[in-house]
């Protein structure tokens, strides 16, 4: 059961990866990367149950917190063209 779910998540990761590589606009890439990060969180949580160590859940929670740092930085960059300069 968990094994099948993990496999499906890996396939979903591959699909988001294709979107991230093909683009064509940066927004496609950002979205794909964000979804990919979510898939990573899911995969680590599932891997924890797969190997009978549900304490991996903490790890995936921390990854979920990390996931949008890069996304926020990228979106700020696309909006302003820089990451905050001297006014």
């Amino acid at each position: 059961m968990f094994s099948l779910a993990t496999l499906l998540v890996v396939i979903a990761m591959a699909m988001t990866l294709i979107r991230a590589v093909r683009g064509p606009t940066p927004y496609d890439r950002i979205l794909a990367v964000n979804v990919h990060g979510t898939m990573t969180v899911l995969l680590i949580a599932l891997a924890g149950f797969l190997t009978d160590r549900p304490d991996f859940l903490d790890l995936s929670l921390a990854y979920a917190l990390l996931n949008f740092v890069g996304t926020l930085a990228a979106l700020k960059f696309f909006k302003h063209g820089h990451l905050g300069e001297e006014q």
Binding site: L17, A20, P26, R29, I30, V33, H36, G70, A74
Partner: peptide, 9 residues
């Protein structure tokens, strides 16, 4: 830009 984003993946 694409390279920077994909490196995160």
């Amino acid at each position: 830009l694409a390279i920077a984003i994909l490196t995160g993946v």
